[in-house]
Amino acid sequence: MKLIVDNMTCNHCVKAVTKAINDVDPNAKVSVDLTKKEVTIDGGSISQEAAIKAVDDAGYQFVGIGY
């Protein structure tokens, strides 16, 4: 799944978003592209709704689904 997430600007943001998702699903593989503002989640069993909530709870703004 790919999420478009606003207000990510640096490696601290990458770590915060990755940790937020891995706190919900430790088996999820998370990669972040700051240029595209895209968070890709592979594996694991986290639902789209749970991933969006984790991102929002970490202080970042979910803006859409990536393709």
Rank of each mutant, 00 (worst) to 15 (best):
S45T: 15
M1W: 03
G64R: 08
A58S: 14
K19W: 01
F62G: 05
K19L: 07
D23Y: 01
Q48M: 14
K29L: 10
A51V: 13
S31N: 13
N7E: 08
I21K: 00
K19N: 12
V24Y: 04
G59E: 14
I52A: 06
M8W: 07
H12G: 08
A16Q: 02
T9R: 01
Q48T: 13
D33H: 02
G44C: 10
V5M: 04
T9L: 02
T18K: 00
E49Q: 15
D6C: 00
Y60D: 10
L34D: 09
I21A: 00
V24D: 01
F62K: 06
E49K: 13
D33M: 05
E49Y: 07
I52L: 10
A28T: 11
N27R: 11
I21W: 05
A16R: 04
N22A: 04
S31G: 09
V14K: 09
A54C: 11
I4K: 14
L3C: 05
K19Q: 13
A54K: 08
V5H: 07
A58C: 12
Q61V: 15
V39H: 11
F62W: 13
K53N: 14
A20I: 01
S45W: 00
V55I: 15
V5T: 01
D25W: 00
N11H: 03
D6T: 02
V39L: 12
V55F: 10
